[in-house]
């Protein structure tokens, strides 16, 4: 762990990503205790105010007089909550299925891999739209749908790892002493695949944040009045020629969050990659 932070400090991009992401998380967590204007109920006398760095509304207000900064911070709360939940759900699902497929082999493995092939031949966005259209938009459904687009990425890699691990001596000897399949999976295989899971999960987080924003932008994600970055963009589009700040800042928020996660993810991947690790 100490070594982890030591090498993190040596990488500018990894460090920047880590600091940026942690500050977003902290900001989202402490939002209720900062004295922010209400993100949902606006003041109609303060409609479409341009950014005023020193005033009450540093990033301006929207068409119904709500403070953009406050909506961004609360929107970040929603975004991070949904994205982290979707990533966690996808990772658990994908890893579980990956271990199952790799460990059991045979017909179960073949069927699962075929299902993945089929899902991967869906353009992801289309699959997402279809499911949201059927289930109806809500935060819970968005989490489920995003997790559904994500699990295959873990399964393929984890399955490959398990296939290799399975032939290793410590697994063979555990089998020889009569350990149950479930016990071997939990005791020996799970800890060994956690590293790739972590790397994929970080990279997936970035993809899921963008996808979630896209869904909200299309009106199929987080529903008003809950603040959400994608939805703020969609609302601001109409005012593009008069109030540029409504579309600029939510986009920047998505960009910076995704950038932070990507930088961290790339660094993590290099950190855990034995090939680059040797060079360090």
């Amino acid at each position: 762990m100490k070594d982890f932070f030591k090498t993190l400090l040596r990488s500018y991009s990894g460090c920047a990503g880590f600091i940026l992401l942690s500050s977003f998380v902290v900001l989202a967590l402490i939002a209720p205790w900062i004295n922010l204007p209400d993100p949902i109920i606006g003041n109609l006398h303060e409609r479409l105010l341009p950014p005023d760095w020193t005033g009450l509304h540093p990033l301006g207000t929207d068409p119904v007089g709500r403070d953009i900064l406050s909506r961004l911070i609360y929107g970040g709360q929603t975004t991070l909550m949904v994205a982290f939940s979707a990533v966690a759900l996808g990772a658990i699902l994908g890893t579980g299925i990956g271990i199952l497929a790799g460990f059991s082999g045979g017909i179960i493995d073949r069927i699962l891999m075929r299902i993945i092939d089929i899902q991967l031949s869906f353009p992801l966005m289309m699959l997402t739209l279809l499911v949201v259209a059927v289930l109806g938009p809500s935060i819970g459904n968005v989490i489920i749908v995003l997790a559904l687009t994500s699990w295959t990425r873990y399964t393929r890699i984890i399955r490959g790892q398990v296939l290799v691990l399975k032939e290793r001596e410590f697994i063979l000897s555990a089998k020889a002493i009569g350990a149950s399949a479930f016990w071997i999976m939990r005791q020996h295989i799970l800890p060994n695949v956690l590293t790739p899971v972590m790397v994929i999960a970080t990279l997936e987080l970035a993809r899921i944040i963008i996808m979630m924003a896209a869904l909200s932008f299309l009106g199929l994600g987080v529903q008003p009045p809950d603040p959400d970055w994608g939805q703020m963009l969609a609302e601001g589009r109409v005012y593009i020629s008069t109030a540029w700040w409504i579309v600029l800042f939510p986009g920047l928020a998505i960009l910076l969050t995704t950038l932070a996660v990507n930088l961290l993810g790339d660094w993590l991947r290099d950190y855990f990659d034995p090939k680059t690790r040797l060079k360090r």
Binding site: I210, F217, L233, L255, L256, T258, L259
Partner: peptide, 22 residues
């Protein structure tokens, strides 16, 4: 490339409209 990868396409589209059209 890293910036572009983190940019949501729909927002980039809006920014293009804001700059090149509006």
């Amino acid at each position: 490339a890293v910036l572009a990868q983190a940019t949501p396409t729909f927002w980039l589209g809006i920014m293009f409209i804001l700059w090149f059209a509006v």
